[in-house]
């Protein structure tokens, strides 16, 4: 599990660095195209937007794994021992519930629906763009499972 997790981490890291780099280049290209070539590029704006949505989801997923998302810790910090572990697992479980219902179920249903509609400037099915949602949902669930396993491991150690 740990090795799979590290492999996925690496993949996600490389992917998000590439996404940002390509996005910067696309937007710069858009400026150049407008001034040097005097031809506006409708295609680069749409593509950058979709890459951005991908970036948001991929990096957000990564942050679920490393538990870097923002949260309000005031009450949680006061908890100790078994209660803290239980709440910690509860948090991961709720994240799994969210990923399963909204990202995996809702995401794959909207992806399937959108396979029949074409983006007006890229001429690709919108479903391809939407597909990142269920994919990231699955990875999020995996990350949260790893986090639960870690939490239980720590509990065993301290016991």
């Amino acid at each position: 599990m740990k090795r799979l997790r590290n492999a996925i981490n690496k993949l996600v890291e490389v992917f998000s660095v590439l996404l940002i780099a390509v996005m910067v280049l696309l937007v710069l290209w858009q400026v150049v195209a407008r001034y040097m070539l005097n031809s506006p590029s409708a295609f680069s704006e749409a593509l950058t937007r979709y890459l951005f949505v991908w970036l948001v989801l991929v990096t957000a997923t990564y942050a679920f794994g490393s538990r870097e998302h923002m949260y309000i810790s005031a009450l949680n910090d006061k908890l100790r021992g078994g209660v803290k572990t239980a709440v910690g697992i509860g948090i991961e479980a709720l994240t799994i519930l969210f990923a399963a219902c909204v990202m995996i179920y809702g995401g794959s249903s909207i992806t399937a629906m959108q396979m029949v509609s074409l983006d007006s400037s890229l001429h690709i099915p919108m479903g391809i763009v939407y597909a990142i949602i269920p994919v990231c949902g699955v990875i999020t669930v995996f990350y949260c499972m790893c986090n639960i396993a870690e939490e239980l491991g720590r509990r065993k150690e301290s016991a």
Binding site: N38, P40, A42, E45, S120, S121
Partner: peptide, 24 residues
């Protein structure tokens, strides 16, 4: 003249044919 058009290739092309530059 750069004239704003709706985001579609047909309308960009239309504005270009009309003599201007279509900007979505």
């Amino acid at each position: 003249y750069k004239i704003r058009v709706q985001d579609s290739e047909v309308y960009i092309q239309m504005m270009n044919m009309m003599g201007g530059v279509g900007i979505p």
